[in-house]
Design a protein around this nucleic acid. Structure first.
Length: 649
DNA sequence: AAGTTGTTAGGTGCACACAT
DNA sequence: ATGTGTGCACCTAACAACTT
């Protein structure tokens, strides 16, 4: 791709542009190029892209593009970062992998299929995706389409580690050139390479397969810059004895006065990992030290979950690195958004990574860490295609309608634009639901000013959630009159979404501590049960929470007895999590490591249970006395699946 | 210690597959 | 066509833990 065909700027089309990581890479690479259009369906990403580049990507459905549409851009190169979800390991693990059958993959294939129908096909293509894509049927179809369209390809699986950056994020890349263009090392055509050597025109002493690449990984690590190179100097580590922060869910509060008064250590505190999380997830955390030469990929859920979402930094160097018993003394903290950005920038400055082709590849999407920094305090939103509206207060206002001096309460109005998304559904009432399962029914009234929520209903919602003046509410239309409400509370740095029932807070305080009573997202109460059976079952499994794929899901531990015809959910589990079940005989699933098994919800004597349990016990050779961690998945507040984890394996 | 509550084991009936 | 065995669904009693 580094090869310049002619002097005039490349005309580039950017598909799935996200926040513009690919464009940034292109600019940083030094290639003379002009992005003639970008396509992205996510409006939040487009806000960031527009902020960064002064151009708002086309927010249409990529699948609706025609060959004629694409011809009009006369693009030399297409950059594509199609959605990676269809190829992730989690999808594979769940046995849910659909690859090209997945709607998210089909739009990508649709674009490729347009190539032969364009009058001026792009001369170059660049595709980026997750590891796993290279074995998908989407990949097979992509290669097939490209070959038929006269393209020659070179594929790579590369990690920033190979460019001196202490960041482990292997990704799949495909470069494609349309004949008669060619690569500098044509003998690597149509190969999957695990070394960047050919990009520099260097074929000697480079690894061409996975095994060789892994053998060389230790050498790569030694040549990386240490993590401390991208630490934020204003968030330096505070060496010394561990403080009392560990009693707090959020380290920025409840710590001793000395540190509170110190602006530097206060900024540290907001990123400290609470002790409760260390106790619960310590053995699953990826810990790095300032002198470490690698860290794990930061994902969208970094800051929300600790397991598998990115590395944590030990700010106090222990005598024995990585020893779990020392974790509490290491004052673990999250990397800040700025530091994640720094890692990105450092890569750009890496001496070996300065070549255009390499920069283009590795400045691609860096996920949420960058998104957070770039979007400042904007909450990240999912399901952006659904109608939504946001409410926040001006200075001096409160959420309670009683306190409003205006004749009508603006905070209780439902925007007309939102109502138009489902006009019939909003005639009489709406139902608000929140992430921790609670819901509120609000009756509506209409007058000349618009559609209002009843004052009493609204005030109940406000008081139940202890809404404060700095809070931001995001209302997302789910279905008919059902609306998901996301509540964002301000802390000293940015807005954080509340994922469990909030506690009433000191009006002076800005941070809300999650309440583990109605729902235990990060720190659930001790094992639910009042009977011996359940307690004994939990005693069989050490830290059952560690097995959960989503820490906020309800769970219980099942110890197998003699009767295995149905899997009962005890009343206590039901009450503790406020679980709702479908009616008798409604369908549900057991989610197992490699398969999903259909079954039905049964209601016997008011107690919910799931049939088909005996077959699973047999299939997985479970015997009396074995313990299984049952993680409950909900949809629309109703338990629709049980994800089974077998700790004994 | 008695009462209450929730879970589990035992028992029964039904449906289905297979052998006679 | 009938008998037998097996698995599942469902109900209920017994038991264990907890509460008063």
């Amino acid at each position: 791709m580094a090869e310049r065909v002619e002097e005039k700027p490349w005309r580039v089309l950017e598909f799935y542009s996200g926040i513009g990581g690919m464009r940034y890479s292109l600019m940083a690479s030094g290639v003379v190029a002009q992005v003639v259009e970008a396509f992205e369906i996510n409006d939040v990403a487009n806000d960031v892209y527009q902020h960064n580049f002064g151009h708002r990507p086309h927010q249409g459905n990529i699948q609706s593009l025609t060959a004629g549409d694409l011809d009009r851009y006369s693009a030399d190169a297409w950059l594509l970062s199609p959605p990676c979800q269809p190829y992730t390991r989690q999808v594979l693990w769940l046995g849910l992998q659909k690859h090209s059958g997945d709607a998210r993959a089909s739009s990508f294939l649709k674009i490729l299929e347009l190539i032969p129908h364009t009058s001026t096909p792009p001369r170059m293509l660049f595709v980026e995706n997750v590891v796993g894509f290279e074995t998908s049927d989407t990949h097979m179809e992509m290669i097939d389409t490209l070959t038929k369209s006269d393209y020659v390809t070179q594929e790579f699986i590369l990690s920033p580690l190979q460019f001196g950056v202490p960041y482990s994020r292997p990704r799949y890349f495909c470069l494609a050139k349309r004949k008669p263009l060619s690569f500098q090392s044509p003998h690597n055509n149509n190969k999957l390479l695990w070394s960047p050597g050919p990009l520099y025109g260097r074929d000697d002493q480079v690894e061409f397969d996975k095994c060789q690449a892994e053998e060389g990984s230790e050498n790569l690590l030694q040549s990386c810059e240490p993590v401390e190179k991208f630490l934020d100097l204003t968030v330096v580590q505070v060496n010394g004895e561990p403080s009392s922060f560990d009693e707090s869910e959020n380290g920025s509060r409840d710590c001793d006065g000395q540190e509170k008064d110190d602006p530097v250590s206060e900024s540290v505190h907001q990123y400290l990992v609470p002790l409760s999380l260390i106790e619960r997830w310590g053995n699953a955390m990826d810990i790095v030290y300032p002198d470490s030469k690698r860290c794990c990929c930061f994902t969208k859920s970094y800051y929300r979950y600790v397991k598998g979402t990115g590395s944590l930094l030990a700010t106090v160097q222990p005598k024995v690195k990585g020893k779990e018993s020392c974790l509490k003394e290491q004052r673990l903290r999250y990397f800040t958004p700025r530091e994640i950005c720094n890692a990105w920038k450092q890569f750009k400055c890496s001496s070996r990574g300065s070549s255009s082709s390499v920069s283009i590849q590795f400045f691609s999407r860096l996920d949420c860490g960058i998104k957070r920094a770039a979007s400042d305090s904007r909450p990240m939103m999912d399901n952006v295609s659904k109608p939504r509206f946001c409410k926040s207060l001006s200075t001096g206002e409160t959420w309670s309608s009683k306190s409003m001096v205006a004749l009508f309460s603006i905070e209780r109005i439902i925007p007309e634009e939102f109502v138009r998304s489902a006009p019939v559904a909003f005639e009489h009432r709406v139902v608000f639901s929140v992430r921790w399962g609670n819901s509120w029914q609000l009756w509506l009234q209409r007058d000349k000013n618009g559609l209002f929520m009843e004052e009493e209903d609204w005030d109940e919602f406000v008081s139940d959630n202890f809404l404060g003046p700095n809070d931001v509410l995001l209302f997302i239309h789910v279905d008919t009159m059902f609306i998901e409400v996301q509540i964002y509370k301000q802390d000293s740095y940015h807005l954080k979404e509340i994922t469990s029932a909030p506690l009433q807070t000191d009006p002076q305080a800005e941070v809300v501590t999650p309440l583990p009573q109605t729902s235990p997202p990060e720190t659930p109460a001790p094992a639910p049960a009042s009977t011996s059976g359940a307690r004994q079952a939990d005693a069989l499994v050490n830290n059952p929470e560690q097995y959960l794929s989503n820490p906020s899901n309800p769970f219980f531990v099942k110890k197998l007895g003699k009767k295995i015809d149905v899997l009962y959910v005890s009343h206590l589990v039901t009450e503790r999590y406020g679980l709702q079940f479908g009616p008798h005989n409604s369908p549900m699933f057991y989610i197992l490591p490699n398969e999903k098994i259909e079954a039905n919800t049964k209601i016997y004597g008011g107690c919910a249970c799931f049939n088909g349990w005996a077959a699973i016990c047999r299939k997985y050779k479970l015997k009396q006395g074995d313990a299984v961690v049952c993680e409950l998945e909900r949809s629309g507040g109703v338990v629709t699946a049980v994800r089974l984890h077998f700790p004994n394996e």
